[in-house]
Design a protein around this nucleic acid. Structure first.
Lengths: 343, 343
DNA sequence: CTGAAAGCGCTTACAG
DNA sequence: CTGAAAGCGCTTACAG
């Protein structure tokens, strides 16, 4: 019972009077070990307080049962992005059921030139989940092009063993335009997210297309570029409603935060929501339920995205699939910032 | 350049015409290697695309440069608890600057009887951060009592190499009672969190003590037990304001979510906030700024808690300290759900 | 400043 | 059903 030397498979083998190989087989659920030996060995391991070693196992097996979590891109790049969190949460649960743990790579910025691919090799991760922020850096390129299975969330990966899952962002805009149209709105403005964001650009494109499909015209000054945060929505509101120019009757803000800012601007200007202008946000953050009036918004199915990401990655790892591109349906949540013009 | 066999230290040694030991020393920044050799070796590693192996290194060194993240307890036990996220975020940044990566243990529930301590030994983590939820399970006991350095957040750990950092929860209640008192409130009610939560109990105790210190009386029916979530705040509001019993002029809700629920109840009952009753929440969630009226609440310094946790854990690991108990000051954020009775 | 050798704790063919 | 032996890729005294 000397404590300075970890108890190894060797010690157990000796005590049980069998070979190391047998112990290893028992540990790895090989079928060809007699039940009797198995039970004896388990008892001995228990008594001795045996603990296997991940590093020894990984070194020998060349697989770590670890999934790397990579957050690509700038800003929001932290854990506190609510979308990121919820997706990852569902991902973790699913992947955990299959015996994998999650390895978070600390921000590269603090490391000397190391790239993600190198770190994946270093840890021998079995796969990676890559979640996109804005302005995705070049350094993840190596990773996605490699033989390491990768699943992207909100980022279109296409390497030999990678795929992605994201909300159908085009449909987000379409559903909002549909919704507004059915309420009688014809003058619809758009407040966009940061244009380094791929997702943001898809939404804008979808918006333009929908407007066209309905044969509506889109004034250039009704497409405003924000940055997803509150202040930019406030400023967008001012620029849309302050002057004497024609005003839209409906506004789609591609984030809830910007919608909150827009509401603040309207309040200052004495413009009533939804009396004078209807507003739809995007994200369905908790606060969307509590603003006054409660915000109509579009919700992404984060739980589903996370679960799908996990399942797809597991398929890549198992070789059951080598690629997949999945779009998940968004859902419009009607609340009280929108009103029909048709009554 | 055969791709099926990883390039090892051996290959590099051979190409450079030196021993493996020398390569290892270079990799580990030993001082006693000639600059010339160093440069040559680095060039060769670069050309060959050499990648070190974490498992081999960990096996030999018995230290992994990994920090385990353990979420103890039930519910909220997920990533989406906003407090958890922000603390962890600051923690990760700090720890990352010191070359550590984070290992998240997938929920035990899905594993067969494995406890956290076993997993820490398995991965040979250098330390752990343990974040408390409610109803902390026995299984982390082994871990905190062990020789593995542990830092607790919102949970009082005391093992040979552990400590904790949390907000001074007693002071949260004190500061709220002070604030109410100075505004002229004498009839103050309290909506508590789940009573399996240690933090929640400290807050309640602090509340009772403060009330006593001011010589005020606390009616038993003015202390209501909630569960931190919205609905329980709503119900607390109803039970406080529906009957004919005497009503408090001020309410401290120990979570923002419950405060939102309370506001909903008041709205239904036609009770004005802050006209008829003042309200203070706790957490300063994003939504607190957007409810109508904006919620006065108490903010924890999550950034500081996370940074301190990281620094303390690093000290434990380095042997510069073996224990520490730190309480961080809360901050009351005055907004518009509170009004003075003295004017 | 450099190297030979043993060892870290497992797994994997292979033989029996 | 079981075992002997080599190997995974590094580090660590120790000797020179």
């Amino acid at each position: 019972m000397k404590e300075n030397h970890a108890i190894t498979i060797r010690d157990i083998a000796k005590k049980a009077g069998v070979s190391q190989a047998t112990i290893s087989k028992i540990l790895n659920d090989y079928p060809d070990v007699s039940q009797k030996t198995k039970e004896r060995v388990f008892r001995i391991m228990e008594e001795a307080g045996y603990r296997p070693s991940h590093s020894a196992r990984t070194l020998a097996q060349k697989t770590s049962k670890l999934i790397g979590v990579v957050y690509a891109g700038r800003i929001n790049a932290d854990f506190d992005h609510p979308f990121f969190i919820e997706v990852l949460n569902a991902f973790k649960r699913t992947i955990g059921m299959h015996g994998y743990d999650l390895l978070f790579f600390s921000d590269e910025t603090f490391q000397k030139e190391e790239n993600f691919y190198a770190r994946c090799l270093y840890y021998k991760v079995d796969g990676c989940i890559i979640i996109a922020g804005e302005d995705v850096q070049q350094s993840i390129e190596d990773l996605t092009k490699s033989e390491i299975p990768c699943i992207g969330v909100d980022i279109q990966l296409d390497g030999p063993k990678s795929g992605y899952v994201m909300t159908d962002n085009k449909k987000i805009s379409q559903s909002v335009v549909d919704y507004f149209y059915l309420q009688g709105h014809r003058d619809i403005a758009y407040i966009g997210g940061a244009n380094e964001s791929a997702v943001s650009n898809i939404r804008l494109k979808g918006f333009r297309e929908s407007i066209h499909e309905y044969g509506l015209t889109l004034r250039p000054e009704w497409v405003i570029e924000g940055d997803f945060f509150e202040q930019s929505g406030y400023e967008a509101g001012l620029s849309l409603f302050k002057g004497n120019a024609q005003k839209p009757t409906a506004v789609f803000s591609s984030s809830d935060l910007m919608a909150f800012g827009f509401m603040r601007a309207m309040q200052e200007l004495g413009v009533s929501i939804p009396g004078d202008v209807s507003l739809v946000g995007c994200d369905d953050q908790l606060a969307a339920r509590y603003v006054q009036p409660p915000l109509t918004t579009v919700r992404q199915n984060k739980e589903k995205i996370g679960r799908l990401a996990a399942l797809m990655l597991l398929d890549f790892i198992a070789g059951r699939a080598s690629t997949a591109r999945i779009l998940v349906e968004p859902e419009l949540i009607g609340r009280e910032t929108t009103a029909s013009l048709l009554l």
